[in-house]
Simulated scan of single mutants.
Amino acid sequence: MNRFHLRIFLLFLLLCSYGIIAQTAQRVEYRAVKYKSNVDAPLTNDELTKIKEVYKQSTEDVILNDKAHLKRIKHLLRNRIKILKLGIKDQHRRHTLLSEVELFNHFNPNLTRDLVFDKYGFNPLKYNLNLYPSENILYRIDGTNYYIRIMSQFQ
């Protein structure tokens, strides 16, 4: 019986040591989002049009009445999403093609892909892009030298 108690006691010590190790794991670093002052300005007509195209009747409830979400969308459109034209040497790298990204048609099932790319009329909200990456990412627009760069929100 003495051996049995010794085994139970050793098992108890072993399990306790796992609990102590788990509690001393490294802390996760908190990184705050850095907003520029331009997110405090009202939406432009172009921005509102892009939002309404994607969110339709839910625009008020989902975006306009939610100040935090509205601020994130403004930050995306004004500061973090850029359309770039890159040279030939950059085209050899493998980037996700825009045609491989699903449409974000949850609020508007009639949403369609752009048949022709227009740098100035392009609506990045239409696509289910990774809008909150931890590092900058690129998407290539099919058949063009243009790329969508989404910058990390922590820069």
Score class of each variant (00 low, 15 high):
Asn145His: 09
Asp46Gly: 03
His92Met: 06
Ile148His: 02
Gln155Cys: 12
Arg80Ala: 13
Arg93Lys: 15
Leu70Pro: 04
Lys34Phe: 13
Ser17Phe: 09
Asn130Phe: 13
Arg78Asp: 12
Phe9Gly: 08
His75Arg: 01
Pro124Glu: 02
Leu98Arg: 00
Ile148Phe: 02
Ile63Gly: 12
Leu103Phe: 11
Arg113Asp: 11
Val33Pro: 12
Asp142His: 04
Gln26Ser: 14
Leu84Thr: 01
Val101Asp: 09
Asp61Thr: 11
Leu138Met: 13
Tyr30Thr: 10
Asn130Ser: 14
Glu29Phe: 11
Glu100Val: 01
Asp40Thr: 08
Arg78Thr: 06
Ile150Ala: 00
Ile73Asn: 03
Pro42Asn: 05
Gly19Ala: 10
Gly19Asp: 06
Val39Ile: 07
Leu84Gln: 05
Ser17Ala: 12
Leu103Ser: 08
Lys82Ala: 10
Leu13Ser: 14
Ala41Val: 13
Thr59Gln: 04
Thr49Gln: 13
Lys34Thr: 10
Gly87Pro: 05
Ala25Gly: 11
Tyr139Glu: 02
Pro124Ala: 02
Lys71Met: 10
Tyr30Gln: 11
Ser134Met: 06
Glu29Met: 10
Cys16Arg: 02
Arg27Asp: 14
Phe122Ser: 03
His69Gly: 03
Gly143Thr: 01
Pro124Gly: 07
Arg3Gln: 10
Leu6Met: 07
Leu15Phe: 10
Lys50Asp: 08
Leu10Ser: 11
Ser37Cys: 06
Lys74Pro: 09
Leu6Cys: 10
His106Asn: 05
Asn108Lys: 04
Gln91Val: 00
Leu11Lys: 04
Thr49Trp: 04
Asn130Gln: 15
Ala41His: 08
Ile81Thr: 08
Lys85Met: 08
Pro133His: 05
Arg140Met: 00
Gly121Phe: 05
Arg27Asn: 15
Ala25Val: 05
Asn145Phe: 14
Lys89Leu: 12
Tyr132Arg: 04
Lys67Asp: 15
Leu103His: 06
Asn110Asp: 15
Gln57Asn: 06
Gln91Ser: 15
Ile21Gly: 09
Arg80Leu: 15
Ile150Gln: 01
Asp46Trp: 02
Leu13Asn: 11
Lys74Arg: 04
Tyr147Ala: 01
Val54Thr: 03
Arg94Gly: 09
Asn79Cys: 14
Gln91Glu: 03
Leu76Trp: 00
Asp90His: 08
Lys89Trp: 07
Met151Gln: 06
Asp90Gln: 06
Leu138Asn: 14
Phe122Ile: 02
Val39Ala: 00
Asn2His: 08
Ala25Gln: 10
Val54Ala: 10
Gln91Asp: 02
Phe12Arg: 02
Ala32Glu: 15
Arg94Tyr: 14
Asp46Cys: 02
Phe9His: 04
Asn108Phe: 08
Asn65Arg: 11
Arg27Phe: 13
Phe9Glu: 07
Ala41Asn: 15
Val39Ser: 01
Ser152Lys: 01
Asn2Lys: 05
Val116Ile: 12
His5Leu: 14
Asp90Arg: 04
Glu100Thr: 03
Ile63Met: 00
Val62Met: 14
